[in-house]
Design a protein around this nucleic acid. Structure first.
Lengths: 201, 201
DNA sequence: GAGAAAACTGCGGGCCACGCATCTTTGCGT
DNA sequence: ACGCAAAGATGCGTGGCCCGCAGTTTTCTC
């Protein structure tokens, strides 16, 4: 497909991004679907042609990121050990992008605060988790292809995918609460998982 | 508090159970909050005093089950290795209860089919995942107490809890899709996880 | 350039979630 | 046993979300 599908993706991304920006600034319940649609220049009705709910629009970026991890995993060199590939891909995925580093300090703190408030909304938490769960399917297939296991019948690739998402969730939760870097948290989490999560001492 | 709180829990449980029964029978969108409230003998307004949404009411039983796992984990003998305790508790939790085995075959199949349709509803998937995530906190604390790690500052117990929930999700998904027993799936999943999820061969 | 397919839009309705005010029940102290 | 204060249950009203439907506009294909 060509220009048509491209426009659609652009609109979808714009809607998701607009939703996030507005909600981070104003708060979830103080942003109406109408506002988001207006920001992008579409009718409110069209918003619901793209997303089944306000929450889904917000979580779309997260879903997209997770699904890209699956692609990135397939792109790793064939000989590389699985967990090295996984670590590389996850670290790459959560490397702070230009939309973060480009802003000056005060902006970034306000953003972090707003983001934190946003992710405290139950409906959003639920939708973020669902996005992760949906991406698990693609992740599992990628892992399956890499390890010669069938994601449909074998639980191994499913477990690996589920564990990746779980590690990511734990890492981001601790990242927002504490002062560690996302990289540190992810590396440590993956390390412990590949060791089989033995009790300390 | 005594009798008062007890009545509340009873009503809450009754509402959740009624929601599940009706939705399994009729489908999510064909059951109104009004119906659930009527089934229990409460006003529709009261329903929303107990649950913030229809989906939350449905997922409540799941949340309760997951939280009980944390309690059960604390109740295991002190000397038992952590992962043995976890396996024991999870197997016990997902042992088919009397509400399943008491029904004759045709009923049980209809129930399974209805349950499958119910869990296909996006809003419900999201809420189930959120319930699991909420229980992770209690689980992590229980693991922390058992291993002498602080769930607030150390990611180890959090990772264990998150992994437990992930294993459970993968197991139940495969249980509903295939013909394996929940026990088999859980044992296999926990085995692979404690081995560090090494790629096969 | 014309027809077909697909997307956007406006309208309308059903339902849900919740704030508020009121009434009823429960627990407790005397 | 009685009554008071706290907490729960209820009714009403409102704002907002989500979606079906039908009509219009845009885009793809030939």
């Amino acid at each position: 497909m060509g220009l048509r599908e491209e426009k659609k993706q652009a609109t979808r991304t714009a809607l998701s991004w607009a939703a996030i920006r507005l909600i981070v600034a104003r708060g979830y319940e103080k942003v109406l679907v109408e506002d988001i649609a207006a920001e992008v220049g579409v009718s409110p009705r069209t918003f619901n042609n793209y997303f089944g709910s306000k929450a889904e629009a917000v979580a779309f970026r997260h879903l997209d990121r997770c699904e890209r991890m699956a692609e990135a995993l397939r792109a790793r060199p064939a000989g590389e050990p699985l967990w090295e590939s996984i670590e590389h891909v996850m670290l790459e995925t959560f490397k702070p992008g230009p939309e973060v580093t480009a802003h000056p300090r005060p902006d970034r703190e306000a953003w972090a605060a707003g983001l934190h408030r946003m992710l405290a909304v139950p409906a959003l938490q639920a939708e973020y988790l669902r996005a992760g769960a949906m991406a698990e399917a693609a992740l599992a297939e990628a892992v399956g292809d890499r390890t010669g296991t069938d994601a449909a019948t074998n639980i191994y690739p499913q477990l690996v995918a589920a564990t990746m998402v779980a590690a990511q969730n734990v890492a981001s939760r601790n990242f927002m609460a504490g002062s560690d870097t996302m990289r540190t948290l992810l590396v440590e989490a993956l390390h412990q998982i590949t060791k089989g999560l033995p009790p300390p001492a």
